[in-house]
Design a protein around this nucleic acid. Sequence first.
DNA 1: TAATTTAATTGGTGTCACGAACTAAGGAGT
DNA 2: ACTCCTTAGTTCGTGACACCAATTAAATTA
Lengths: 154, 154
Amino acid sequence: MQNKPTAEPAGADQDIEDLGLVDGLAQLSFLVQGALGKVAAEHGLSVVQLRLLGVLRDRTPGMQELAHHLGLDKSSMTGLVDRAERRDLVRRTPAAHDRRSFLVSITPAGQQLARQCEALASRRILDLTAHLTEAQRGHLALLASALVNHHTTI
Amino acid sequence: MQNKPTAEPAGADQDIEDLGLVDGLAQLSFLVQGALGKVAAEHGLSVVQLRLLGVLRDRTPGMQELAHHLGLDKSSMTGLVDRAERRDLVRRTPAAHDRRSFLVSITPAGQQLARQCEALASRRILDLTAHLTEAQRGHLALLASALVNHHTTI
DNA sequence: TAATTTAATTGGTGTCACGAACTAAGGAGT
DNA sequence: ACTCCTTAGTTCGTGACACCAATTAAATTA
């Protein structure tokens, strides 16, 4: 997931080693997570908190639902939301029809922070792709979207 | 980083929303990290440990160097290598020319575990891209490689 | 040799993740 | 109504991780 395997015959553009799909995506994900991590850190957040805010931009799910969406255990959510709530980034609202459950929503402060992080993240991720051509960036965006869409739709 | 922005005019293939480069890559990275996390978990590892083994497949760096490569603080490395060493996945060898430093290398057990995880990770990541065409997979691999190569070369 | 830099560790704090056990509320079935 | 079971969320205990600041020991420089 991290090494440079046997070099390919000859790179078309420059000396680009084809890492293969698996290593390529794995390492790409580390790069992106690193970038997001830095952005989050600059605002005193963790990647998970940042992701939480991102999720809540257009949703107001219950704890359970949120846990499922983030791929976390429900017990992990309690602490996550607790910490975010303590910073006034997020709010728990009693659900209308079920006195056991809460709806988690983002606060104005949370929205503002999220927007700041987004802007920064955009710049950082664009930096990551700075050496790609505009066409390549577009292509990459489409391929990533295609992949992601499929797996969030399901 | 997580929402579905304004839909594009009309998807070429199917109803693919273009998330844009930033959201697309961010969400893709979450998917990939999730997949790697599951693979690691199935073998009692964390993503970081798995990555550590990956790095050591073709390197024998010092602690410092390793920390830099993983983007971690040197103090984080001590614990990381400690835990891996405790499981006999990794070994500290005194460096030849500097009695302060150690070279970290992977053990046979570590290599074996790494290979198992690689195989599993390959399958899982291929599953992620199952609905892409072979050409798209190839393209994605090349774009990811181009991006990654640039940022590990620098 | 003395002063500085470097490699790594230690100790302290906080985040995050999980599983197991628990509380409280909703629903089923009788 | 009244058990029985499921569901939503929390609590508790444990461990991995990550950082910073401070420390030790070796190497380097002056």
